[in-house]
Design a protein around this nucleic acid. Structure first.
Length: 613
RNA sequence: GGUCUGGUAGCUCAGUCGGAUUAGAGCAACAGCCUUCUAAGCUGUGGGUCAUGGGUUCGAGUCCCAUCCGGAUCACCA
């Protein structure tokens, strides 16, 4: 049983004995004791003063006395400051806590069974006309981390992606390639497929704007010019031919999309993300129409004179929303309804989470209402995991203005920086091959990038300054990875020196250390060691919190705090050089447990940890 | 204008269910610590009217109201 639970139980009994009624469990507020006071756990007694009819300090005093009597093996000392009762917990209790964490390689995780709720998470969702940029990176990393967090909280998770592979934007790239491409392919030019297509998208836009400018110069109204420019008309014609299944257009479309997918796959692989099921809009966009027709029959929607179909959401405090155009074609909303329908057919979904930027908050508010009306049981409670934009020092990223931070470039830079960084520290990496050094650079570089993005609250906009490279010191991924590498270094040395053969498992031979301490007498721990154990224990609560709030960033912040705490411990105490065998054993186990939790915690963020760096 | 969202140190960010007369980290600046398990580390100094004004109470960065400033959104685009 957790120490906190024991205390809570005892406090409820004590208040009943002293004041005639037990306080409700919620009122037993336990928190970590501030460093400037003695003790480790603090009970806030202000809420009890109403029933004790005594001053806060006096109330704390008598509860402390009773606690010490009731739980002598737990509470060794206490002191009362105002309404705060600070409890000193015996070292044996803390060692028990450590043992429990140490012996459970999955500490903090809730097991997933066949009966666990099924959560589908949609993330990434790229367009196929341009390469991924930093905004997509944030999306992908958040989606992946969220999936891991949900899994850690005992959910079956299906990761899904909806690829926007059709529409006018793809036709623009296709048209530009036909006109100016001279048959360029990824093979012929050595360009990554998504970048190649992106270049033609930009080329289209450039020529198109020239055409518009010329028409305006000839006296045409700008709005009209945008519609009358020959290029845009041609693109529209191509879209029509696509929808009519024109073999020539379709075949070009397939070829170019394949190039893009090959490029995306590389980027996804570098980011370490993957999907269980990919949907393509070209396959789902017709599905939504059926559902809309269905809703029309049921009187949920209505048709205007021009033939367009609308949902009236004014009762819900929203606007009227278009669902089918007057020519019968579908819009974004219709497609999302169609995709939802297919997904529901494919999986018995209990909860649906969409990882999509906050610019689409309104869209998902509407989608939720519509899905609910159409009878999707999870529609009403769908979760829009709405994350903020990545901004540059001079504002938002805009593809057309070329102010984007390309994902592939950024990844490459990060890994190269990490490689450069470790080149200065030759002594640490002596005896390793070039491949191993490169692998470490990959892990560290990606760790820096991922942590940089995941440590900030997903809902908030965040700033990225391309002028300043992402840090490797301080509150960063590499700091935490470094702490792990230090721990692994200690454990390797310990294992080498130990005569006992390895038993395998995450902790290797260190498992032989337990039970800790042998006899119980005099096993006194330093405050710093205890606070490390407390921090370890917090992992469970943090994982739950992250799951409840859909908030991976609190895992990142937790990992930093744990690593920080360990580094202070590392600085102040010797592990292998400790002469007292029992203390040494304890510290090795403590280190192993910290390493394990760091690895698991970082794993939830999709960040790997290196054995050395 | 309606709706949503944010405002904490020069910069980037934490701050749980409201808890400790002193609001935390990192970066940047300055000063220390490697003959010692990895210095990508540790320790210290300076830096704040928690946007502003009210309210709620034993207690407010945190909850409520108003105001100011920023961002998003309100398309027969996706």
């Amino acid at each position: 049983m957790k120490i906190e639970n024991k205390i809570t139980e005892a406090v409820m009994q004590i208040t009943e004995e002293l004041y005639g009624q037990p306080v409700p469990e919620k009122m037993v507020q336990l928190q970590q004791t501030r460093p400037e006071f003695e003790g480790q756990i603090t009970l806030v007694v202000f809420p009890f003063t109403k029933m004790s009819h005594k001053a806060p300090e006096q109330t704390a005093q008598e509860i402390g006395e009773a606690l010490k009597e009731k739980l002598p093996e737990v509470v060794s000392k206490y002191n009362a400051v105002k309404g705060f009762l600070n409890l000193s917990i015996s070292s044996e209790q803390w060692i028990d806590v450590l043992r429990e964490i140490y012996e459970n390689p999955r500490y903090g995780f809730t097991p997933v069974t066949e009966d666990s709720p099924l959560v589908m998470i949609e993330y990434s969702s790229p367009n196929t006309n341009k390469p991924l940029h930093l905004g997509h990176v944030r999306n992908n990393l958040l989606g992946w981390a969220l999936a891991k967090v949900m899994e850690a909280n005992g959910n079956r998770v299906v990761k899904t992606n909806i690829v926007n592979d059709r529409g006018i934007h793809i036709c623009k790239s296709m048209l530009a390639w036909l006109k100016w491409g001279n048959g360029e392919t990824p093979e012929s030019s050595g360009k990554k497929g998504d970048h190649l297509i992106g270049d033609y998208y930009v080329a289209f836009d450039k020529h198109y704007r020239e055409e518009v400018r010329e028409l305006v110069a000839q006296g045409m109204d700008e709005e009209q010019a945008k519609q009358e420019a020959p290029l845009i008309k041609e693109a529209h014609e191509m879209l029509v031919r696509w929808e009519q299944n024109d073999p020539e257009v379709r075949s070009l479309w397939r070829k170019m999309n394949e190039w893009v997918y090959a490029g995306f796959d590389e980027t996804y692989k570098a980011l370490g993300v993957s999907f269980d099921k990919i949907y393509y809009e070209s396959e789902t966009y017709l599905e939504g129409k059926e559902k809309v027709e269905e809703g029309l029959e049921k009187g949920l929607f209505y048709r205007r004179d021009d033939g367009s179909v609308w949902a009236d959401l004014t009762k819900e405090g929203l606007d009227e929303k278009l669902l089918l155009r007057s020519d019968g074609t579908s819009v974004y909303m219709t497609q999302d309804i169609g995709t939802a329908k297919l997904r529901f057919q494919d999986y018995p979904i209990d909860k649906m989470i969409y990882v999509v930027g906050n610019e689409q908050n309104y869209h998902f508010q509407v989608l939720s209402i519509l899905l609910d009306k159409l009878g999707f049981k999870w529609g009403k409670d769908l979760v829009h995991f709405s994350y903020g934009m990545v901004e540059l020092p001079n504002g938002k990223m805009k593809s057309r203005e070329g102010t984007v931070v390309d994902a592939d470039d950024l990844i490459q830079t990060m890994v190269a920086d990490a490689r450069q960084m470790s080149a200065d520290k030759v002594n640490k990496l002596e005896g390793i091959t070039d491949e191993e050094a490169q692998e470490i650079a990959r892990i560290v570089g990606m760790g820096a990038l991922k942590y940089f993005i995941l440590k900030v609250d997903a809902r908030k906009n965040m700033l990225f300054n391309p002028e300043e490279s992402i840090d490797f010191n301080g509150n960063t991924g590499p700091f935490i990875q470094y702490t792990y590498a230090r721990i692994r270094s200690i454990l390797r040395k310990w294992e080498e020196a130990s005569p006992v053969p390895s038993q395998g498992g995450g902790n290797g031979k260190a498992a032989n250390l337990l039970p800790l301490g042998g006899g119980r007498e005099g096993a006194s721990l330093a405050e710093r060691e205890i606070s490390l154990i407390q921090k370890l224990q917090d992992f469970q609560t943090t994982v739950r919190q992250a799951g409840q709030d859909y908030n991976p960033s609190c895992i990142a912040n937790y990992c930093y705090e744990l690593a920080s705490e360990y580094n202070r411990f590392y600085h102040d105490f010797s592990v292998l050089r400790e002469e007292d065998a029992r203390k040494r054993q304890f510290r090795i186990a403590l280190s192993a447990a910290v390493g394990q939790v760091i690895k698991n915690g970082m794993g939830l963020l999709g960040i790997e940890v290196p054995e050395r760096m």
